[in-house]
């Protein structure tokens, strides 16, 4: 759990750095990501080669934002088992075969590989969005596309309190584990009062925080004072990538490239 908190803080820090990607308008990044995800998952279940060019997006954004790949790869690895768990049944149930380069392969495996690639791409794109934008700016972008005020506010507050409660919880867990050596987790019998007392403390804190907000003139509006307009660069980013996604979706680029090369060699 400490890892989770550290991850949140790290992503927060990453989002606060200055680089070409972080400087883009949050709305543009949000839209690009959503479109990207839709394009990725829209490919047929046996598709592999046509999917591959889509890896350009995370790779380029990654490099432009100067992110270290290690952490994000770890995140992807963390989500993988779930997808593999369901996808692994594809080879079991799908016995149709196809011949590729003189070897016969089950279509189930193709769909499995396709699924895994999609998983890698979608997870990477999602993490990139947060790592280059940050929660508060995403909230602002959500407001622009018309998400109700109360939801965005609620989201930002939740996000803020995860860190605070996380610290409190870490202290409680430490105290618990010191008195319960060798236990894994908390006994179910004690769980209710353990979590319950954390909850009550949280209630009290919520009230104090709300009081603190009201004392500084809070009337239900979360003013971030950050209303940058969408600029030319933002539009270029959005249109450029979306065009690329659409071209990738419409033409099997690796296949074109491959036929060109094999054609040339063949002659």
């Amino acid at each position: 759990m400490k890892d989770s908190l550290r991850d949140i803080r790290l992503l927060d820090d990453l989002a606060r750095r200055q680089n070409p990607i972080n400087k883009l308008h949050p709305l543009v990044k949000l839209l690009t990501t959503i479109i990207y995800l839709a394009v990725v998952v829209s490919f047929g279940r046996y598709e592999i080669s046509a999917l591959l060019p889509l890896i350009f997006y995370p790779v380029v954004v990654f490099a432009l934002a100067e992110l270290a790949p290690g952490r994000i790869l770890r995140r992807i690895a963390w989500v993988m088992p779930l997808v593999i768990g369901i996808g692994i049944f594809n080879p079991v149930f799908d016995h149709q075969t196809v011949t590729i380069m003189n070897s016969t392969i089950s279509k189930g495996w193709l769909s499995f590989i396709s699924l895994v690639i999609k998983c890698v791409l979608t997870v990477a794109a999602g993490i990139l969005l947060v790592a280059t934008t940050g929660m508060e700016k995403l909230g602002a972008a959500m407001r622009i596309i018309g998400v109700p005020k109360i939801m965005v506010l609620q989201l930002l507050l939740t996000y803020r309190y995860i860190l605070l409660l996380g610290d409190e919880l870490a202290r409680m867990l430490r105290a618990y584990s010191l008195r319960a050596p060798g236990h894994r987790g908390i006994k179910l019998a004690a769980w209710g009062s353990f979590a319950g007392s954390l909850l009550l403390r949280s209630f009290d804190r919520a009230q104090r925080v709300y009081a603190a907000m009201c004392l500084r003139g809070f009337k239900g509006d979360y003013n971030t004072g950050d209303d940058a307009k969408v600029g030319v660069r933002d539009l270029q980013f959005l249109i450029g990538w979306v065009a690329f996604f659409l071209i990738t979706r419409s033409y099997n680029l690796p296949f074109l490239l491959g036929s060109f090369l094999t054609g040339v060699i063949g002659q």
């Binding site: 609620q154 507050l157 939740t158 996000y159 309190y161 409660l165 949280s202 919520a206 925080v209 239900g220």
Partner: peptide
């Protein structure tokens, strides 16, 4: 509103 925020964080 803040209560929802804190409760969300609590569940998290």
């Amino acid at each position: 509103i803040p209560l929802m925020g804190v409760m969300g964080a609590f569940v998290f």
